[in-house]
Design a protein around this nucleic acid. Sequence first.
DNA 1: CGCGGAATAA
DNA 2: TTATTCCGCG
Length: 149
Amino acid sequence: MRSGLLREVRGTCLCSILAPWPWASRFAFPDWAYKPESSPGSRQIQLWHFILELLQKEEYHDVIAWQGDYGEFVIKDPDEVARLWGIRKCKPHMNYDKLSRALRYYYNKRILHKTKGKRFTYKFNFSKVVLVNYPLLDMANSSLLLVGE
DNA sequence: CGCGGAATAA
DNA sequence: TTATTCCGCG
């Protein structure tokens, strides 16, 4: 996969977070963030997977990037993110209005929530997401994953 | 902008 | 079920 960024925690493949914070190395991303569309069990690419994908690549730091608290990110260029998402999903008429509606559906699912007052800023509920994706993961021994929420 | 209902698609 | 599309409201 992505050698160099990989860590092994209780059998679960994790990738170190690519963030500018000094304490960033203490945290990690579960590998579902990098799960290819073709992998067994996964259907079409999900929006939050795509968001994580962009967040993980430094070439998009002017488009979308981590900023603020752990799990918090800012969409610096809404039109560009929408354009990229539209290309990925073959939806040429995608725009931020529609993309943001999809993000809002994540609120009830507890995958994301809005950082109120901060424009284009959302925050991942990593602890919830990880529990959902890795129900058997021993959270007591994976406190590094529980910082969000 | 940000929100969430409603209809519809895949 | 996860979006996509459209939209009225604050």
